[in-house]
Write a protein that binds this DNA or RNA. Sequence first.
DNA 1: TCTTGTTAGATTGTCGACAATCTGTTTGTC
DNA 2: GACAAACAGATTGTCGACAATCTAACAAGA
Lengths: 230, 230
Amino acid sequence: MGKTDFSPIADTTRRAEIVALLRRAILTGQLEPGQKLNELRISEQMRVSRAPLREAMRELVQEGILTSIPYAGTFVINVTAKDIDDAYSLNKVLDEFAIERTWKQRDERFFDELDRRHDAVKQATRNRDTTRQIETALQLHGLIHEWADNSVLLETWQRLTSRLQMYFALHQQARREAVPAEDVHETYVRLLKGTDMRAAQRHAREHIDLDFEELLAYARDLEQRPSKGA
Amino acid sequence: MGKTDFSPIADTTRRAEIVALLRRAILTGQLEPGQKLNELRISEQMRVSRAPLREAMRELVQEGILTSIPYAGTFVINVTAKDIDDAYSLNKVLDEFAIERTWKQRDERFFDELDRRHDAVKQATRNRDTTRQIETALQLHGLIHEWADNSVLLETWQRLTSRLQMYFALHQQARREAVPAEDVHETYVRLLKGTDMRAAQRHAREHIDLDFEELLAYARDLEQRPSKGA
DNA sequence: TCTTGTTAGATTGTCGACAATCTGTTTGTC
DNA sequence: GACAAACAGATTGTCGACAATCTAACAAGA
């Protein structure tokens, strides 16, 4: 018997790479909300044919970050204040559930991974890398969902994450201020290591509410302006 | 100004029709779990080319009822007891949330629709139409999610529903017994019309637990047998 | 001037053919 | 006989071209 655990080899289809490229472009705000994706132009830029590009787009439509209108085109979703509100209120419920399910299964490996991801956030914060900061913060947050041992919950949360990451990226892009230097996740991590589950659940709610208010304000402001066309 | 409200016209792409056809085939158990979908064969049967068929498949993969392995094929998902357990435990959480959100917004139109859907279930039950019975029962159940006015919740629930419908169809197909004739949704509807929200939430949990136990028993039994290949 | 019909251009939807990859069989070697 | 290399068939992934549809500009008529 071998000792090493082999992870699945990378998907080597163009489609998979296109999905990754497009998703990244959307989640970092490179492609703006409402913007139309011209198939011919993009396929030429990526040096692929339209077939795998279109298949990739269908995936992202189902993932919820693109929207498609037959014979009209495929567009980046528009972000409304209500969308953010909806996503966040559901996220709260999922967090509470995830913490409950994770709680009994916490072990040394869990705490190690928690620290590792927390460190990643802190490093991104030090480097003033806003994009990476958002990414790592969501990964830290996602640990409880991965550890809850519920595939449907994990899937659901990953879909939600896509949107949240997009919202945060837009928000960060809008306000050109520096990123908060202090560590807002300290308490969250500490409570997850502690013995009071209810306290951890309560904090997850409040902790989320914090950045949420900022995001909502931004979204309400954004709704006054027109959306980007082709 | 006109008086009528026009709904969006139907999608008239082959892709959309293929998605509907395939989904129906899967959710009714016509296509068995684990079964491989041969692109050439299906495209010839449907008299379409592989392009729209493949795009349709990508959508259903993201919807969670198909799974794809590069260069190997696309398969109907396999149903494990844990999958069912996961889906149901999350469903409980979502139901509780949906009832809370719907509660304040209940009005005459809500109650009417509730009765309408309840009647649909009863009629399907009278007609011994098991497929339709599952469909209508899930639609009755889905009303609180539609009424909660949270797009992300609704999306999430619809994804879950796909699987639940598939699970139930398999279950019904397995046991050849007659469908329960008595009306198991009577209490559920009554509580949703009442004034005690907590009671409604509690019942939603227990009500679900009922059929759930049966489903789980079936799934555990199913896991002893091999899965269907090509 | 406003509405309606026409047309040209651009873009999406679909098709049939080819390339890349996998799977099972056969062949050859030890 | 056991094993590995080579082959053949089938299937998926990708491509370039064509058909269907939409959009916007323009022309014609009330």
